[in-house]
């Protein structure tokens, strides 16, 4: 069973739709700690403001639950950011799974628009999450903050400079892009996660 963590931080429905398209029937949308602990896989989606999302996670008593999970966990977009050490968005401490910090895009180049919105390529892919995905494959991003490149990076992208498109440590994975909106490439990445 796949648990989709519901903490009032956006695009749950898009993720549910993507699972349905993959033929996954055994999932539950929940903020119940017991249900999350007993799931085979945990998906933590999120859009919007990281400090708001972190506050919502705490309000549901989940900030201690998530880091203790032992099954594969995938954070999407803000979900990834919450698994990092800290975020400049609201200057918050995050869950600290990944040692990388989340910072705002900064560029003096007017051609580098913020938010980073649209399809960008990912490279330096190194994880079973990207099984069958080619170097340079395009995925869909929408964000103004990003995790820096670091030891946990398993994919990078470039928007006025390199940043972590995906992170991995132990049983925790995070993708900054939206696999649920990234066509067949995104569907494959979600499928790879489900099959971990």
């Amino acid at each position: 069973m796949i648990a989709i963590v519901d903490y009032d931080a956006g695009n749950i429905r898009s993720v549910v739709n993507a699972l349905e398209r993959l033929g996954v029937k055994d999932y539950v949308v929940t903020s119940d700690a017991e249900v999350i602990r007993s799931a085979d896989k945990v998906l933590m989606p999120g859009v919007g403001d990281a400090s708001y999302a972190m506050a919502n996670l705490k309000a549901r008593g989940l900030e201690g639950v998530i880091p203790e999970l032992r099954q594969p966990v995938l954070g999407i977009c803000v979900g990834l950011q919450l698994l990092c050490s800290s975020s400049e968005e609201g200057n918050i401490r995050c869950l600290g799974i990944f040692e990388e910090n989340v910072v705002r895009f900064r560029s003096d180049d007017p051609a580098v628009k913020i938010p980073h919105m649209g399809w960008n390529s990912i490279s330096d892919l190194k994880s079973p999450l990207f099984k069958g995905i080619s170097e340079g494959a395009f995925v869909y991003f929408v964000h103004s903050f990003h995790a820096v490149e670091g030891p946990d990076s398993i994919a990078v992208s470039d928007h006025g400079g390199r940043f972590s498109a995906a992170l991995h440590k132990d049983n925790f994975y995070g993708v900054q892009f939206h696999p649920e909106k990234s066509g067949p490439v995104g569907a494959m990445i979600l499928k790879n996660f489900i099959e971990l």
């Binding site: 898009s14 349905e20 398209r21 869909y140 939206h178 990234s182 066509g183 995104g186 569907a187």
Partner: peptide, 8 residues
């Protein structure tokens, strides 16, 4: 549309 399409 949201259920059937996998791009934004």
């Amino acid at each position: 549309i949201a259920a059937g399409i996998d791009i934004p």
